[in-house]
Design a protein around this nucleic acid. Structure first.
Lengths: 118, 118
DNA sequence: TCGCGAGTTGAAGACTTCCGCAATTCGGCA
DNA sequence: TGCCGAATTGCGGAAGTCTTCAACTCGCGA
């Protein structure tokens, strides 16, 4: 019942774990776009883009429909923006905080001598 | 220079794409914890947990240090919470919005007949 | 110093994901 | 109807990930 929750979350993040898919989502934040546009901006083979779009569709973060002879894609929820924003923030935080934070944590602990976390 | 940004983001999300890793991060949100505790709550082999912890360490979202003879782990930045929260929100949104949103988008488009997005 | 429990590392095997190619489907238009 | 461009699907090989087993390191107390 409440157990496979972590499984679902993991799948959600796993689907974001690909450069092309992230890029697509970022482009779609500005509004619906035809495959044609995505293809022009992303530099990847059509079949590859299609595969990645299929993954996004399967997960449900985007929807597709046809308009004026072209296939359009759109985000299914604006919450995606938050996720990408949070990712960006962490990317920054992680690159700067790491060592300083470690030192701070060490100071609070009575024992010491980590041996360096490799 | 500015190109592999998507690559970095993808890696960040990919590292979250595993149930055990997500669970560890959620547990660490409450504060630093010894490996021993994580092991007690997660139900996974010690060596497996260690591997997942190594992944988290490599990416830089957690740090490890030794305290009172035990190895402790801690988040390297509280921003991780945002990421997990955003994930949770989307998971909910995606499960409810999907079909309704599709219908709405279709209404705005002059042409129609998607053929159902499979 | 020796031995023990805590945690980590290395490696092998099953499994999944990624990519480009060729073939296919689908809608629109002459 | 027949053709054309747009987009998708199926497939095979290369590359990566996950899990488990055994071996190893490290700090601490007897």
């Amino acid at each position: 019942m409440s157990v496979p929750l972590y499984q679902a979350k993991a799948e959600m993040f796993r689907m974001l774990g690909h450069p092309v898919r992230i890029r697509v989502l970022e482009l779609l934040q500005a509004g619906p776009r035809p495959v044609r546009d995505l293809l022009a901006e992303i530099d990847v083979e059509p079949s590859n883009l299609s595969q990645q779009l299929a993954v996004l569709r399967r997960t449900g973060v985007v929807v597709s429909f046809r308009d004026a002879g072209l296939v359009m894609y759109a985000l299914s929820t604006p919450d995606v923006a938050d996720l990408l924003a949070a990712g960006r923030r962490i990317l920054g935080a992680v690159l700067t905080d790491r060592d300083g934070l470690l030192a701070e944590l060490r100071a609070h602990a009575p024992a010491d001598r980590t041996g360096g976390n490799r």
